[in-house]
Nucleic acid binder design. Structure first.
Lengths: 357, 357
DNA sequence: TTGTAGGCGTTATCAT
DNA sequence: ATGATAACGCCTACAA
């Protein structure tokens, strides 16, 4: 039988390789871990033994012995809308793969009185060396405090400023919301509604700030009734639109703090037979998939979510490996993306029929 | 200082607990693992020691010693459209949590010549005890063969029939597509387009079969040109619609093999100024989030993706723990969901203006 | 019901 | 440059 050796995994150990190569297990370990001080010929002998035996180091043994599991955790809010998390996942996974780390998930539904206990269960088993905290997890002081207490390193995606020894990754959402609002003003809009993001997200305040700054900067009066609280999901966007569009002085444009809420606004506009952008201009934030899946496609601000998550995971892993405490990156830029959901006000007039026509 | 013991994790071992409780480590082990044969008083002593010391068993040591990592892997296609995967994730995570398992991710972009090597790298490290294979991973014979060779148990979500010793979870997509198509026929449609799913997905053939069966059953002639190949993503749905709606004898209804493609069809209809459902009825499949985020909301078939994934993960974990080889569940039902994207043909006539009005 | 001994597969320490 | 040996923390035997 051709090369009929036992190829069952989990059975070939470092001893088998050492025997095959005629060296000690320590030498095998050196080669496998790319340590120096191994003669080239020895290295090659070992490597071919590894290949022939299809040797794979056992992860559990490595973790136990080296006290390093090569796993990082992702503690994320398990929300209905998954656009943000999808990008976070991909970014974090990219950073992990490149460094031969694995990613373990810890989804948490919010709000949740047991967040801290859930995170503790997750972080204290020693399965993960560190944790990535996308929004809004990094905005929760209790979570940060717990991880500090547990001495589990973490990297957060949050606009908050980081203490010198912590890793925060952020973007300039304030500037981007400013730019979007300004764009609408320049199109001629004066009654511009705003749907705020979830109050537990640090980014929400930033984006609201950008909106208000733009109004102020252009001398457009701020109207309290044109601002509604949202929670970053479709339904809250729709609900906000329901209120705003029912106002006697309804807005001609609405800025939503993310794309999911903007999609909700768009949906409600259509339900009311309003034309978009003719009767109502709509802008979102994030440029997640949904922004270009609805019709018309949404004007929005492109937040580099995946790159931010990749950066967070990368910095975390570097720190875990005692990497030079690389200085934190500057906040990422968010680029406005103009699409078909925005136009000058009243591009077309007159009552619309109930089908949005 | 109040209760100022060292609470650093990963330091408190089973020996500390044993000493504190005045028992042997084996007894602690018994208590922690809920084994029987421990006197109630002893158990309590141990449990309070565990609490006081904040003891957490070390996962790596457990995995190494017991040869059980309590981790299952999820090998999934990392597609642009995430609706399906989102539901799979939640289902699988639910099953894991309930049984104190963790979930490790292995995303794979398809098509990919290295699928098998990627899966091998993932499965052979011994980090995962078994893997869940959502569509289309369980449809790839090479992947199944590899895992069998590696002796890594798996549970797949696929309409294929399972060999007696393997776990396949499926749903009746054929019936559901039949029902949707039939519904359109009963509304009066005769020219019904179809956008097929990715040919590598087992479900695609099933759904196409349901479509053809319905036509045949109702004596509606099958027209080859009304069928277009799609790939389960928005763009391919849009592309298919572009062709179909450009036909001299354009369809009055289009059945897409999933919601993402249906959304693409809807988008293209709007681009062409067609009213939906007045000029064109559209049906999707899955009932993922996007189906009720577009306007009008999509008629579709509700596939219980999360429940299927939960079932797959549950059966896998039961098998891993030598559970009684529970018989596989019957295929899940897919329930048609009628929404606003479908109506009798030509509900309103005449040319539409370019805004889809 | 409880305890003792051995081993899981690797990395780390210290020789050589 | 290489190797023998001791951890790492737990679980599975087998005794008591």
């Amino acid at each position: 039988m051709p090369a009929g050796r036992d190829t069952r995994p989990g059975k070939v150990t470092i001893f088998d390789v050492a025997a095959r190569a005629g060296v000690s297990i320590k030498t095998v370990s050196r080669v496998v871990n790319h340590e120096s001080n191994v003669r080239e010929r020895t290295r090659e002998k070992v490597l071919s033994a590894v290949r022939e035996l299809r040797y794979r180091p056992n992860a559990a043994a490595r973790a136990l012995s080296g006290n390093r599991s090569r796993v990082v955790g992702l503690v994320y809010e398990n929300a209905q809308e998954f656009g943000y998390t999808q990008d976070v996942l991909n970014g974090a996974l990219g950073a992990c793969e490149a460094r031969d780390y694995a990613l373990l998930l810890c989804p948490i539904g919010l709000p949740n009185p047991d967040v801290v206990e859930r995170v503790r269960d997750f972080a204290a088993e020693g399965r993960v060396e560190g944790v990535v905290l996308p929004a809004p997890m990094g905005d929760l002081p209790a979570v940060r405090a717990l991880l500090s207490e547990l001495r589990v390193p973490f990297a957060a995606i949050t606009p908050k400023e980081a203490p010198p020894d912590e890793i925060n990754v952020s973007c300039r959402d304030r500037d981007a919301t400013f730019a979007l609002t300004e764009y609408l003003i320049e199109l001629g809009h004066r009654a511009i509604g705003f749907v705020a993001g979830h109050p537990d997200h640090g980014a929400s305040a930033e984006r609201y700030g950008g909106y208000r700054d733009a109004l102020a900067h252009h001398g457009v009066p701020f109207v309290r009734d044109l601002v509604r609280q949202g929670y970053f999901d479709f339904e809250s966007g729709q609900a906000a639109a329901r209120t705003l569009l029912g106002l006697p002085a309804a807005p001609t444009a609405i800025v939503a703090s993310n794309d999911d809420m903007a999609a909700g606004v768009l949906f409600e506009a259509r339900e009311r037979g309003l034309g978009v952008p003719d009767d109502l201009s709509i802008a979102g934030f994030d440029d997640t998939r949904i922004a270009s899946r609805v019709w018309p496609r949404l004007t929005t601000a492109r937040q580099p979510i995946a790159r931010m998550a990749e950066t967070a995971a990368r910095l975390l892993i570097e720190r875990l490996n005692g990497g030079t405490a690389e200085s934190l990156p500057k906040p990422f830029e968010c680029e406005p993306v103009i699409r078909e959901s925005t136009a000058p006000p009243g591009s077309r007039r007159g009552p619309r029929d109930p089908e949005g026509c």
